[in-house]
């Protein structure tokens, strides 16, 4: 795949041209923070952002999504949104999360709804310029990414180094001005990568991330779960902002004519009351401490075997920022376990 160097002005021209052709979702300022939103002009794009309020997940797995329509007593009809779009400005840790979701939604039972959106998405990732307040991607090995994107941008001062990762990205790259990236540009990019590999680490995990499944093997009955959960509101904010949380509910909505309706899926969260409650009121995982533990076990023990051993926490730090009682920080929980239980 090719690597180009393109000036920021030329890149803005490319983005504006892209907006004219397709739907572009890009990172923009939202008050004094940042978020992904439909982009109307390249001048609103903020590739110097630290972290977005919500991960780009919502464009691949929307908060609510119509799976099918139905007639009462009649047939069900699959519904798909079939529109190409560009996700512009995805940070490496969020890209890793998308790569993980791609694997999870394809394996065992292929989810056509997720994959339809995914196939329609063109992802332009970008390396981090400014670390966010709570990022710990370096600890999780997700500070840089080597795949999944169609194009990867790296800010090397006055210009971007742009590399395609797929044939789709290669085609897009051909439409960009710029020159073949020279040695100096590639060296500058290497420097950004080296810096980020260590520098996106506001919370430092005291072990190699790959050790976490083994750490959790001996931590199930540790007091930290109950201690933390004492102040948990079970609000599900940690689930909501997480780029790797993908649990969902399914619910029916009957139309005003009472003859037709739709079945939707909507985000759900394992911290919320009733997540495991069946008719008859039996709740299989009820205590908040159990639910709190389940989230972190899912990230670092239950999901990893499904995704080739990767930890399903990418170190974005959003849950740290979103948690009102300040108990959600995975690193502080894991470090506490390491302090008490040791490594090995």
């Amino acid at each position: 795949m090719s690597v180009k160097k393109i000036s920021k002005d030329d890149f803005a021209v490319f983005v504006d041209a892209l907006i004219g052709k397709t739907s572009v979702i890009g990172v923009q300022a939202k008050g004094d923070r940042f978020d992904f939103a439909p982009l109307e002009s390249a001048k609103d794009l903020r590739l110097d952002y630290d972290v977005t309020l919500q991960p780009p997940k919502k464009y691949l797995l929307p908060p609510t999504e119509v799976l099918m329509t139905f007639e009462i007593g009649g047939a069900y009809h699959s519904q798909y949104q079939d529109q190409p779009f560009v996700l512009l400005g995805v940070h490496p840790y969020d890209m890793v999360a998308i790569n993980q979701m791609d694997e999870l939604f394809q394996q065992d039972n292929y989810d056509t709804h997720y994959m339809k959106r995914r196939d329609n998405a063109t992802i332009i990732a970008c390396d981090v310029v400014k670390p966010s307040e709570n990022v710990f991607a370096s600890s999780m090995g997700t500070a840089v990414v080597r795949g999944g994107y169609d194009i990867l941008l790296t800010d090397v001062g006055g210009a971007y180094v742009v590399e395609s990762g797929t044939p789709k990205g290669e085609k897009l790259l051909a439409e960009m001005k710029g020159t073949v990236a020279d040695e100096a540009a590639l060296k500058s990019r290497d420097a950004v990568w080296s810096k980020n590999e260590k520098g996106l680490n506001r919370h430092e995990l005291k072990c190699d991330a790959a050790y976490l499944p083994r750490l959790l093997e001996k931590a199930y009955d540790h007091p930290v779960w109950a201690e933390r959960a004492k102040t948990c509101f079970a609000c599900g904010s940690c689930n909501q902002v997480c780029p790797t949380c993908y649990c969902f509910n399914v619910q029916d909505d009957v139309n005003w004519d009472l003859q037709t309706g739709k079945r939707e899926r909507a985000w759900d969260g394992c911290l919320l009351d009733g997540f495991t409650k069946v008719a008859g009121e039996h709740e299989f995982r009820n205590p908040r401490s159990d639910r709190f533990r389940h989230r972190l076990y899912r990230k670092a023990k239950y999901v990893p075997p499904k995704i080739g051993g990767q930890i399903a926490c990418v170190g974005c730090g959003r849950c740290v920022a979103a948690c009102l009682p300040d108990i959600a920080n995975p690193v502080s929980v894991y470090n506490r376990l390491i302090d008490d239980l040791g490594i090995g």
Partner: peptide, 10 residues
Amino acid sequence: GKCGHCQINN
């Protein structure tokens, strides 16, 4: 195996 509700540990 997607929605997460029926999980019994792993």
